[in-house]
Amino acid sequence: MARTRQADTGGLNEAEAIRRAQQGDEYAFEFLYRMHNRRVYALCLRMVGRTAEAEDLTQEAFLQLFRKIGTFRGESAFSTWLHRLSVNVVLMRLRKKQVAESSLEETTEPDEESGGPRRDFGSADPLLTGSVDRINLQRAVEQLPPGYRAVFELHDVQGYEHNEIAEIMGCSIGNSKSQLHKARTRLRELLHEQERDKAREARQAAKEVEQES
């Protein structure tokens, strides 16, 4: 059965709102939207970064939800169903973008299907210097393949548990853990690349100063 939550408006609860929404009641739709839009919007905003696009995706996620609400039978929590739809909507958008970008330039992204970033076990990678800078991390997150990014966002940023992510993403818990590990490992690589680029720029700048003097 669907988990129900008492809301603060008019004594209507989620289960009742779902039942009424299935009959086309506008008030019930609005009630469900008001109840869940914050989390969906936050997820979209985190995933795409731009307000206008996040609004568009939020609208699309709820539209898909409401189109299908007649088929909701309560096998899973309503919020899980909504978040699954939201993640799918966001992933589809990100993947479309990725395809568009890949057609213009050679991608160096790891193949999500074949296991992602490779690492020679036992080989010593340099450690990230100091604590991880939030801006650099955000830049690296934006470069993650959509699937990795979704799991990383849900687990490490938004604090979902693996069992919740598995439900949302429609995968096993083991797969969620594996994707998260690959995402973090890829982020580590990207952060290393950033550090190398910065070091190179610093050397170049020092060289130029030396030449000028």
Binding site: N37, R38, R39, V40, Y41, A42, L45, R46, A54, E55, T58, D125, L127, L128, S131, V132, D133, R134, L137, Q138, V141, F152, D156, V157, Q158, G159, H181, R184, T185, L187, R188, L191
Partner: peptide, 21 residues
Amino acid sequence: ADLNSISAAARGLAIAPEEAP
């Protein structure tokens, strides 16, 4: 150590859920 640092820093990326416009 690096992956733990990344995971810890990720919490700082969270944004407070706010009402969509």
